[in-house]
């Protein structure tokens, strides 16, 4: 039981990170119907910018709570701003010229951009892993049992609390943006019918650009979280996390925002539990298998709108 609770907490943390990245996939898919393969690498860029910002700020391990919070906030803002520019540039450079072209062209440029971003970071920052000393430490003990094997303590670390809280907060803000602001309305209009939206005076180009900007900013938050949680990043983390997050987006029903979050949580939980109870080597197989099984029975994902076949 205690072991289960501990895994649940770990799984939710991981799922939150996946969910944040998945939103970027699902938003872009919703609005222009393409798989943004470079999004995982945008997440990686976000982690690197956050790392560089944290080092530049010069935060030391022994700093006081207020300083740590301020420094993290600053690093977060820097990472969000700069990563958003990356997201914007990628869209402008590789996707916008192909907006009216056929479906596979932007998919291929996305793969190209993914290669570019990975190798850009590898060339400029080196291929070796970058460790970061733990900044947010400590945690709370929520359960404790004694068995014949010894004591088992269920811990919620501060960083886990931070990650889950931030995710919930961002999701709430984000849901508000989509539901209440003119930008959200423009986005939903573009999702429904881009031509009609343009005829009604919505600046489609800007709306799409902003979608990429928001997606990249959220991915950079996930990047910072990943950096703080695992304490080590390299130029390749975007690929695996990206594929997982994309799987999460599809699992939840691509195009659906709650679906992306739900999918992220499910993938995070499956991975954690599979690693804990079965074999860690096959955790990805478990996640992918669930995806395949869900899609076979629910071809539009868990919360996706079913595609109507018009005859």
């Amino acid at each position: 039981m205690e072991y289960f609770v501990q895994q649940l907490i770990n799984g939710l943390t991981l799922g939150s990170i996946y969910g944040l990245i998945a939103i970027g996939y699902t938003m872009v898919y919703g609005i222009i119907g393409m798989i943004n393969f470079a999004h995982g690498d945008i997440f990686m860029i976000g982690a690197f910018v956050a790392l560089i910002a944290l080092i530049a700020i010069g935060l030391t391990a022994g700093a006081g709570l207020v300083i740590v919070i301020l420094a993290l906030l600053l690093a977060l803002l820097i990472a969000m701003a700069l990563t958003a520019i990356y997201g914007w540039t990628v869209e402008r450079f590789a996707y916008r010229p192909l907006r009216t072209s056929f479906r596979l062209a932007p998919l291929i440029t996305a793969i190209g951009m993914s290669i570019v971003l990975q190798n850009f970071v590898q060339v400029t920052q080196g291929a070796r892993v970058k460790p970061l000393q733990p900044i947010v430490t400590g945690g709370y003990e929520i359960m404790r049992t004694t068995t014949e094997h010894g004591e088992f303590i269920v811990l919620v670390s501060n960083i886990q609390i931070l990650i889950i809280l931030t995710t919930v907060l961002l999701m709430a803000v984000f849901a508000l943006i989509i539901a209440r602001t003119p930008l959200g309305r423009a986005q939903r209009a573009c999702e429904q019918d881009r031509t009609m939206a343009a005829l009604l005076g919505i600046n489609v180009d800007r709306t799409i650009s902003l979608t990429f900007v928001i997606g990249a900013a959220l991915a950079s938050v996930a990047g910072l979280m990943y950096l703080l949680y695992y304490g080590v990043i390299d130029f390749f983390i975007g690929f695996v996390a990206g594929i997982k997050a994309f799987t999460a987006a599809v699992l939840g029903g691509i195009g659906s925002l709650p679906g992306a979050m739900l999918g992220g949580l499910i993938i995070g939980l499956i991975e954690t539990f599979w690693s804990a109870y079965f074999t860690i080597e096959y955790k990805d197989v478990a996640a992918f298998s669930i995806l395949v099984v869900v899609l076979i029975f629910m071809p539009s994902g868990l919360l996706g709108r079913p595609e109507v076949e018009k005859v």
Binding site: R103, F246, I254, D284, V285, S289, V292, L295, I296, S300
Partner: peptide
């Protein structure tokens, strides 16, 4: 067989997943 009734990008991600599954199995 199980996946061909999926359309478009769903098919894409499932084929990607199968590719990864086969690689992971070979690895382990």
């Amino acid at each position: 067989f199980p996946v061909l009734r999926l359309r478009g990008d769903y098919l894409a991600i499932v084929t990607l997943a199968f590719g990864e599954i086969i690689r992971i199995v070979l690895l382990n």
